[in-house]
């Protein structure tokens, strides 16, 4: 049983407290689309940003990560 979008968002915020997280499902109950905006991404490569999110999701999300469309960015005011 894959986690609910809200649970996924909570997991992210536990590791990246200032994160603005948008999670929604698309097609079925295990394909996630997620946007994560955080000031902690400033000056960090996209790869590192995504790795931070994957680390926040932890092991139980290993399966769900395969169907995760992820977009990370920094807050508008940091640009």
């Amino acid at each position: 049983m894959s986690p609910k979008p809200q649970e996924v968002a909570d997991m992210i915020r536990r590791s990246i407290p200032d994160a603005d997280v948008q999670v929604n499902l698309y097609s079925g109950d295990d394909h996630f689309e997620m946007q994560v905006i955080s000031a902690s991404f400033v000056g960090i490569s996209r790869i590192k940003q995504h790795q931070m999110v994957y680390a926040a999701l932890g092991d139980q999300m290993k399966q769900a990560i395969h169907a995760l469309a992820l977009k990370t960015s920094i807050p508008k005011e940091s640009i």
Binding site: I47, H50, Q51, Y54, K62, H66
Partner: peptide, 25 residues
């Protein structure tokens, strides 16, 4: 690459990213 999914793209021996990042780039 410490990256949990496939596909993975490498250019000049540098890991560039998976589908999301390559699409964004």
């Amino acid at each position: 690459s410490d990256w949990p999914t496939i596909p993975q793209l490498y250019v000049k021996a540098e890991f560039v990213g998976g589908c999301d990042i390559v699409t964004e780039m």
